[in-house]
Amino acid sequence: MKLLVIRFSALGDVAMTIPVIYSVANRYPDLNITVLSKQFVSPLFTNCPKNVTFRGIDLSQYKGINGLYRLFRELKKEQFDAVADLHDVLRSMILRIFFKLSGTQTAHIDKGRAEKKALTRINHKIIKPLRTSFEHYADVFKALGYPVEIKFDSIYKGKGDAELFKSIANLDKKNHWIGFAPFAAHKGKVLPIETVKLLIDKLAANPKNQIFLFGGGEKEKIQLEILAGDSEQVTAVAGKLKMNGELALMSYLDVLVSMDSANMHLASLVGTPVISVWGATHPYAGFMGWNQKQENAVQIDLPCRPCSIFGNKPCHRKDYACLYKIQTDTILQKINHIIES
């Protein structure tokens, strides 16, 4: 049997498919799975099960209905028995319709939009934990006849290859390796820069701490270099390693502090504990990193929270109290607890 799995973006969402896809692959070794996504996420699948193949594409080469039909015809040659759409956006929807019309079994994710709207609306919120993205992904495979219990620890058997990050970190000098990913795509998920600076200063005050700053894109790279300054204890990782190097380095961290962002999910893929910081968003929406503990989530209890699933809505209060009220000492206590334990 051949199964096509579609999930184009974003990085964190693709990362969240991996515990489920790998669990399905291990549960059904005779099932050949092809994962269709953007090429840049390929390092996530470097150590995938033998019956999983990654196919990265440049979506700009398949624009519009005609482009997607051309992609469908290319994929159709591989004679897939079923298609799992883990994205359910217009592009993936059109692709799966082409497959369905050709007689191929399809199933797609139910994102639970109504429940998420009830969780984030301004008035009469229904505050309760929703089903996780992992569960929603597993539902798609179940609908295709492949029910699975998600069992996943890491993309590595042990740790990643230290050779991939030796240019910026030396295992021979390892004391406490602490990662910090202070940025996210939207303002509602980012700590004030003053809080970020203060946390880095407090961490660097302990000579046993080595701090690695993670981020992506040219703008974040510049900001992280400024935050690192000339301190020997603080290293801006952005732009210095490829994704496989960052993943390998993350596997050696004692802990990562991350916003509700892709880095939380990358660290989760390598079995690293994450202290996750939540502002406008909330763990109840189902996007907590795989195997991460609720007790390690940092958040302020406000009647307006959560107000957004993705953190992209303007603050109703105009002051982003959900982020500005977070104290560095709260985060430090959680870091120390993980390191000491």
Rank of each mutant, 00 (worst) to 15 (best):
Leu3Pro: 09
Pro29Tyr: 03
Ile33Asp: 08
Lys38Ile: 10
Thr46Lys: 13
Cys48Ala: 14
Ser60Ile: 12
Gly67Glu: 01
Tyr69Gly: 12
Arg70Ala: 14
Leu71Pro: 03
Leu71Val: 05
Leu75Asp: 06
Val83Tyr: 01
Val89Trp: 00
Arg91Met: 07
Gln105Tyr: 07
His108Asp: 07
Gly112Arg: 00
Pro129Met: 02
Leu130Cys: 00
Ser133Ile: 14
Ser133His: 13
Gly145Asp: 02
Gly145Leu: 06
Asp153Ser: 15
Ser154Met: 02
Ile155Thr: 00
Gly158Ala: 04
Ala162Ser: 15
Lys166Met: 11
Lys166Ser: 15
Phe180Cys: 06
Ala181His: 13
Asn209Cys: 05
Phe212Ser: 09
Gly215Met: 10
Asp230Tyr: 14
Ser231Gly: 08
Val234His: 01
Gly239Cys: 02
Gly245Leu: 02
Glu246Ala: 06
Met250Tyr: 04
Ser251Asp: 06
Asp260His: 05
Thr272Gly: 14
Val274Met: 08
Ala280Glu: 12
Ala285Asn: 06
Gly286Glu: 01
Gln292Lys: 03
Ala297Thr: 15
Ile300Arg: 03
Asp301Met: 06
Leu302Thr: 00
Pro306Met: 00
Pro306Asp: 01
Ser308Phe: 08
Ser308Asn: 09
Gly311Phe: 04
Cys315Gln: 04
Tyr324Gly: 12
Tyr324Thr: 15
Lys325Ile: 01
Glu340Lys: 14
